[in-house]
Nucleic acid binder design. Structure first.
Length: 288
DNA sequence: AAGCCTGTCAACCGCAAAGTG
DNA sequence: ACACTTTGCGGTTGACAGGCT
């Protein structure tokens, strides 16, 4: 499909998987577990490359994959998370149990991107109309502040088009935490000693106070999640709060209200001040 | 009925981070 | 510190299905 193979895979199967191949892969992983993808095909008796096996398992065969259409709730959540995180599909997928990054990416590209684009166009058009009206001398009762633009869709939450970050693809470690001792430089470069799997249990769910530097601006006081230490000597947004880490560190549960709450709180945080983007590109460089 | 067009989605790719020796 | 391998990510492609002309 598409491009030439990344390496010589003469004799290896490519393209769609057969039922037999699926069975072989599932049986092998059930018996031996995931990992060792490079050697897995040989051991499982598959004529596929390890990458292909991993992809098939991750995106299709895993038992916890949720099949079926994206629900309106999921749909909304994807739009809103994308407005915060950009194309970080794996991060978005983590907030949608049972959905894969590939699925969400495809769904976005085929369904949502156009819708959001249209909503932005519409909103732009109405804004321009408004400007034209103003130029005509039509009175406006109040000067609108720069608020997040949103448009309503029938029966769903309005689409938030506040900011669309276009981050580059970076891998976000599952247990990444920002510590006082870690500089932003190390955060960006990814040379992370920001925490280790061994130092924290994955399911530790606690309620934390936002550091004063953050809560002062955001108005938010608490979030539920794993520890994230902030350098309170610095003022937000220099303190080390970042969307990816925040969402990554916040456990996923079945409680959609909790997700809503988390989203709302982070939304508040980002909304804090548009000058953040203009005056502190450093903060945004964490996301872009 | 046949051909064209469009949308969807599984699978591929290259790249970069993380892991290992 | 370095080189090499493994893993994970996001972008892209092309097969396929269904609608349209």
């Amino acid at each position: 499909m598409g491009r030439a193979p990344c390496c010589s895979k003469v004799g290896l199967h490519r393209g769609s998987w057969t039922a037999r191949e699926d069975t072989l892969l599932v049986n092998y992983i059930q018996a031996h577990g995931e990992g060792q993808w490079r050697s897995l095909p040989k051991r499982a008796g598959l004529l596929r490359c390890g990458k292909s096996c991993r992809l098939r398992w991750m995106n299709y065969l895993r038992p916890d994959i949720k099949r079926g259409n994206i629900t309106p709730d999921e749909d909304d959540l994807i739009i809103r998370l994308h407005s915060l995180l950009g194309n970080r599909w794996s991060l978005i997928a983590k907030r949608l149990p049972g959905r894969t990054d590939n699925e969400i990416k495809n769904y976005w590209n085929s369904h949502l991107s156009k819708r959001v684009e249209n909503s932005e166009t519409n909103s732009k058009t109405s804004k321009e109309a408004s400007i034209r009206n103003n130029r005509k001398g039509k009175k406006t009762t109040e000067k609108k502040k720069d608020k997040p633009e949103s448009t309503a869709r029938e029966g769903t939450t309005p689409i938030v088009t506040t900011k669309v970050h276009q981050p580059k693809a970076i891998r976000v470690s599952k247990f990444s935490v920002i510590t006082r001792s870690n500089s932003f430089d190390s955060m960006i470069s990814g040379s992370s000693n920001w925490g280790s799997e061994g130092s924290r249990r994955a399911n530790d769910i606690q309620v934390f106070d936002f550091p004063a530097c953050c809560s002062g601006i955001a108005g938010a006081t608490k979030y539920i999640g794993k520890a994230m230490v902030c350098d309170e000597d610095q003022e937000f947004p220099y303190c080390g709060f970042d969307a990816a880490t925040f969402l990554d560190e916040t456990p996923v549960g079945d409680d959609t209200n909790m997700l809503e709450d988390i989203f709302e709180e982070y939304q508040q945080l980002l909304k804090g001040d548009d000058t953040v983007e203009k005056e502190t590109p450093f903060f945004y460089s964490l996301l872009i």
